[in-house]
Nucleic acid binder design. Structure first.
Length: 917
RNA sequence: GCUCGGGUGGUGGAAUGGCAUACACGACGGCCUUAGAAGCCGUUGCCGCAAGGCGUGCAGGUUCAAGUCCUGUCCCGAGCACCA
């Protein structure tokens, strides 16, 4: 029986068979109860989600795990319990709930294990998945296991490859040389995490940066939309801000500087002088530019270096190339750089400024070159000081005209220049400092036609001027870089790409409609290779068997050693292939090709899995349009904040590409996002093997049961908070569950005799029942599980004190408890004679009228100090309360002989009498 | 350095500007028991016999009223980090 499926009411509860019966234990024997109901749910397929129907859908998703060999960490069930509570609650509220789970199963650890042991990563991955699945099932989560998927399954990665082909044909994938960590000793590329302190993690060998051919995705083409659309999603502000910062949009101007023809540079007849383009967010400070700096890797450095500077520049560039980005920024304390010997012309005033190279200018940002304005930029200022370059202030602050400061047109020795000028119609003194760095906005000075303008206006005016003179333009720049999308590894999705020579590519292009507007190529040893995608119909391109998982040794993945797979005859029309060692097949579409040896990074599979869950077995599309339309995107997505940028940004990018293709109906993948906090060890430190403070879910399930673990994880504190585990605190929630059991079950295992359909229970308990239904419901909606549990504890305490309890009250409470402690709730539900599953019963209603107490306690304050309380019927007016207050024996002494100055009355809450001191 | 988030009992934590410390842990006392476990009842912010006073990192401010709002400051945590 699927929970709330499209079955007629009469069919929803089939005749009771033995699995639907409660267990026979007389105590709260969770080791017996929990597997019993897990089996029941599995056999009944209680949590299967069916696509379609009239009920509203609710899609709640966990970030799927990487199935590591270490097994489940306590952090996993924290987020999973939260979503499971929401899933169960939403089902009870009448939603058709999709709550799936799968495996992000490609990745480095499995490959490292394979290298070490020689076993196929798939074998190890499968074993890890089995273990993860066992652990997750023991936690009793209401996943629809029929929708389980693994990114390593070729039926799945076929569609990962398909999406890549869409990116490729839209010109969003290209090949470029990019620096990677290379270990000469191991003859392999290393991932960032395999490099520790500049040495390889394995063996401790030195590593270096080396440029290798890489696939890159043009995520920057989507920068503006990735930024703008953040306003449409319900995400933690901190995460939005992190993405904003990562995208790093800044507005400014691009300015072209002509290179001055130095006599020492070789003159080239007929060649126009080179242009140096810079990006600046402060074009208004152009008059303050006293030198320029190029990144050491800048393409024009060679051309600009004079013979006298050649050796110094070459040495500096070599040194810079040896440093990683990390080292460059690590050694940020002191600026370094070298003069090229050349000068450029400042377009605004015709001045010659020296051109330097320095590694504080980054090659990947803006144009890789800057105009330096040391008076108003901290970094330029430091550099200028270090190398004795001149400083000219062009932004000042208006201050009151001080008579002892003499206005000066030239810069006085002390560097403080005071310039009288008209600012916004008034004569002001504008001070600027030629010996300090003053960042920030102000009034333009020493800037010709900009003088007197505030920064914002000066920017506009100079940009207009630059555009009119065609020496610059308004520009937007992003910090976001294109996404390095390849790994020199075995255990990842192979790229469905074959490299051809130009002539063959041209022939293929004649029959293939799915090629990018401009071909993707790379040149090697003077030969240009052209990337031809496999036709979509030829997918998946599966991983071949390899004899060794060790890298090829020349910077390529282990796939480069599989000659029969690598070197092929390729039919560019059908995508068929044969080993090149065989004779050339007959037919006009066969060409000689070499497969791409890179594989995709782990992000690829996780970029779109949430879409596959809507239709996980489809083999004609990544998901059917019906399923995509019905389930849409997750309504709630819960996972760690460590994915705040990369995974979530990459997935948004892919989703937008799919949206542009018209294959998904929404432009954003995750409507509402929440990050669960990290659980620390009992010592308050991060859990780690080396500290020996790791808590395993298995251990707790064995000692206290899953329901206790789930409840405790939620009771620990706010879901988003970082909080320490405590073995003592867990006893508290365990006792609570015991108490619930005792209040429902008598010592002989029968129903507690104080429960009956006709019982007259205390009015307070009835009121508490309604309050609890409301509070728990509200708290689940707001993901405040800790306070929901405390409310249930308050209820249980009242339940215990009540001499008689109505059956309706107990049943309602069990329903409210069910999302949190589903096994116990199911067991007690069945013991009370209800038909399982409690999961399928509609969420109980609360009666708003019951929530209103007839009497209210009103706090009486004198001068804001708590002096007593008065209990009065709801709605009692101020005058009546005041009359009671002045007579109250605890309050009266504070009022004796005092004059009332003011009375503040908040109905049903507080009465504050302000008296003369 | 920049940008966020957070400092509340012995502990985890709770509090639409309106009783600070709900709920739980721990501790203490009691009941039950041959004993223990479990359970139940009570006490538990600090000072004080009490009346009362003082208490949400610290210093100010706004308000009849501040854990909550504002200013400054210290500490802890997270992210970014030469992005022109």
């Amino acid at each position: 029986m699927t929970c709330g499926g499209r079955l007629a009411q009469s069919e929803r509860f089939p005749p009771l068979s033995s699995p639907a019966m409660p267990t026979a234990c007389t105590d709260y024997n969770f080791t017996q109860i929990e597997p019993h109901w897990q089996t029941f749910w599995e056999e009944q397929r209680t949590f299967r989600a069916e696509t379609g129907g009239t009920r509203p859908k609710y899609y709640v998703l966990d970030m799927f795990p990487y199935p590591s060999g270490a097994g489940l960490h306590i952090g996993h069930p924290e987020g999973y319990t939260a979503t499971d509570i929401v899933a169960r609650y939403k089902r009870a509220k009448g939603f058709n709930v999709l709550h799936p789970i799968g495996w992000d199963a490609f990745g480095l650890p499995a490959e490292q294990h394979a290298v070490k042991t020689g076993t196929h990563p798939a074998t190890n991955t499968a074993a890890n998945i089995t273990n993860f699945k066992r652990q997750i099932k023991a936690l009793g989560f209401s996943y629809d296991w029929d929708r389980e998927l693994a990114t390593t399954d070729e039926k799945y990665y076929r569609w990962t490859q398909w999406i890549f082909l869409q990116l490729f044909s839209r010109g969003l994938a290209y090949v470029d040389e990019r620096p990677v960590w290379w270990c000469p000793e191991l003859r392999t590329v290393l991932a960032n995490e395999e490099v520790v302190d500049g040495k390889s993690e394995v063996g401790g060998f030195p590593v270096e940066r080396r440029n290798l051919r890489q696939w890159v995705l043009r995520i920057t083409a989507y920068a503006e939309r990735l930024l703008a659309d953040l306003k449409d999603v319900d995400w933690p502000d901190s995460t939005k801000r992190m993405q904003e910062a990562w995208i790093g949009r800044s507005e400014g101007a691009e300015v072209s500087f002509e290179v001055a023809q130095a006599s020492s540079l070789p003159q080239q007849a007929g060649r126009k002088p080179a242009l140096l383009k810079v990006f600046t967010t402060r074009p208004d400070t152009l008059f303050g530019c006293t030198y320029m700096v190029l990144a050491p890797e800048h393409l024009l450095v060679e051309d600009l270096t004079t013979p006298a500077q050649r050796d110094a520049v070459a040495a500096y560039r070599k040194k810079a190339a040896g440093k990683s980005d990390l080292e460059r920024t690590d050694l940020a304390k002191e600026k370094s750089g070298v003069f090229t010997g050349s000068y450029a012309i400042n377009p605004v005033n015709g001045e010659r400024v020296p051109v330097w190279i320095a590694d504080y200018v980054l090659t990947g940002y803006g144009t890789g070159a800057i105009m330096a304005v040391p008076a108003h930029d901290e970094r330029d200022f430091e550099f200028a000081k270090q190398f004795g370059l001149s400083i000219r202030a062009v932004v000042g602050k208006t201050e009151l005209l001080a008579f002892d400061i003499v206005p000066s047109a030239t810069v006085p020795d002390h560097g403080l220049q005071t310039i009288p000028m008209t600012v916004e119609g008034k004569l002001r003194a504008v001070n600027c400092y030629h010996k300090h760095c003053v960042a920030g906005e102000g009034i333009a000075v020493n800037s010709g036609f900009l003088d007197g303008l505030p920064t914002a206006e000066a920017k506009k005016k100079i940009i207009d001027w630059l555009e009119a003179k065609a020496v610059g333009k308004k520009t937007v720049t992003y910090k976001l870089r294109d996404w390095l999308f390849s790994r020199q590894r075995y255990w990842g999705e192979p790229f469905p790409i074959v490299w051809l020579n130009e002539a063959d590519y041209r022939r293929a292009a004649a029959v293939r409609m799915d090629l990018p507007a401009s071909p993707v190529t790379f040149a090697q040893d003077g030969v240009t290779h052209f990337a031809l995608p496999l036709p979509a119909g030829a997918l998946p391109l599966t991983l071949p068997e390899v004899s060794s998982y060790l890298p090829s040794g020349n910077g390529e993945s282990p796939l480069a050693n599989v000659t029969d797979w690598l070197e092929i005859w390729f039919n560019f029309k059908t995508g068929e292939s044969l080993p090149a060692a065989q004779p050339s097949p007959a037919g006009e579409h066969w060409v000689r090709g070499r497969r791409e040896t890179n594989t995709m990074p782990q992000w690829a599979g996780s970029c779109w899995y949430y879409l596959r869950f809507t239709d996980p077995t489809n083999d004609t599309a990544f998901a059917s349009p019906e399923a995509l339309r019905y389930w849409g995107v997750p309504d709630l997505y819960v996972g760690g904040a460590e994915h705040a940028v990369l995974h979530l940004l990459y997935a948004r990018f892919w989703h937008k590409v799919l949206f542009d293709l018209g294959v998904v109906p929404q432009s954003e993948p995750f409507t509402k996002l929440f990050h669960q906090g990290i659980i620390l060890g009992e010592d308050g430190e991060k859990m780690s093997k080396s500290r020996g403070n790791v808590v395993s879910p298995d251990t707790i399930i064995a000692s206290h049961g899953t329901d206790t673990l789930r409840l405790y994880l939620m009771f620990l504190g706010p879901l988003e908070a970082m909080k320490p585990w405590s073995m003592q605190q867990i006893e508290g929630v365990h006792r609570f569950l015991h108490k619930v059991w005792r209040e429902c079950v008598a010592a002989d295992g029968g129903v507690n005799p104080k429960i009956s359909a006709t019982a007259t229970e205390p009015a307070e308990l009835t009121r508490l029942r309604h309050e609890t239904i409301k509070k728990v419901g509200d708290d689940i909606e707001a993901l405040r599980f800790n306070t929901a549990i405390s409310q249930m504890m308050i209820f249980a305490n009242a339940l215990q004190k009540a001499p008689a309890v109505s059956r309706a009250t107990v049943l309602a409470f069990l329903q409210v408890l069910a999302p949190f402690a589903p096994h116990l709730a199911e067991e007690l539900w069945a013991r009370l004679g209800e038909k399982p599953s409690v999961q399928c019963a509609p969420w109980p209603q609360f009666d708003a009228a019951q929530l209103v107490a007839t009497e209210k306690k009103i706090v009486v304050q004198v001068n804001g100090k708590h002096r007593g309380e008065i209990v009065a019927p709801t709605g009692t007016a101020q005058a009546a309360i005041l009359a009671l207050a002045v007579k109250n024996e605890r309050i009266a002494p504070h009022l004796v002989g005092k004059t009332f100055k003011r009375i503040i009355f908040v109905p049903e809450k507080i009465l504050n009498i302000v008296v003369e001191q």
